[in-house]
Amino acid sequence: MKLVCPAGNYPMLKAAVDNGADAVYIGFKDDTNARHFAGLNFNDGTAQKAVKYAHDRGSKVYVAINTYPQPAGWKRWQKAVDVAADIGIDALIVADTGVLAYATEKHPQLDRHLSVQGSATNVEALRFYKEQFDIQRAVIPRVLSMAQVKQLAENSPVELEVFGFGSLCVMVEGRCLLSSYATGESPNTCGACSPAKAVRWVETENGRECRLNNVLIDRFASDEKAGYPVVCKGRFTVEGSTYHALEEPTSLNTLELLPQLQQSGIKAIKIEGRQRSTAYVSKVVRVWREAIDSCMNNPQTFSAKSQWMQDLASVSEGTQTTLGAYDRPWQ
């Protein structure tokens, strides 16, 4: 099982490589990737430096070009694919069918992974991407239970990569328009969910209010920890009850499932968090490197060490973690 780690900039990439990432995934400084945030990501020059740093130390570099281009921006996606190929990266992570077609035709020798944003959750969808674009690997959405992951891995025509740790999307990735409904920008169209420019914090008599394009997403008492106002993680009112109607601010952590994931034939574990810090990457990658090595050496006796869990909890959103959809009761 390979460990695939996030890097939002060059120091993060170095931290990921130095702490044992088998591969690091990055994006360019525009809306061609699903973490299109100000101050984040790589230009052609730093990306080239990143590839050299990683390759010199035996790690791979993947480039995420995983948003959905509209006609007006199509050339940016073409250019991103061409630049990635030119600087000698190891694989593209792509979601859009049109972009996959372009990459397959223009750079057939360059490996293609289907992004989680491609929303492939079953063997026929995987077969579509394998037959049309000869993808080597697919990252599967965070919606399948452990039993379903196992079943899919047994029948998959391509390698499978799953999310191990990080921010939790409660919806099928690539199929969530909640953000554009509220703000006009979504992961698919702009590489942004609940974009910062639409967020407004207001101190009121009722507490600290958080608004997304003026819609009240949540209201916090003075002793409550207020997280980033992701549209799906606010408190809303349904038939008079006010609660986290969709999801609480938690992170995904599947460390304890490692032996099962390995037995299922999962080829890679992905860590989320290109928008986080170098300290986050160092800590999370170190823990997961140790855990995967321990699991590979002794799958029978593997157990998640409490120190690992504490370290991961300390950098989790909302400082609580969940197994998410892997665990049926969550669903």
């Binding site: 909640l178 969709l246 049926r328 669903q331």
Partner: peptide, 18 residues
């Protein structure tokens, strides 16, 4: 607008999806 593994109706009713 969105699809999930989670059922939000059963979540509201506090019963398991299964």
């Amino acid at each position: 607008l969105a699809y999930s593994a989670r059922c939000f109706t059963t979540r509201f009713r506090k019963i398991p999806k299964d």
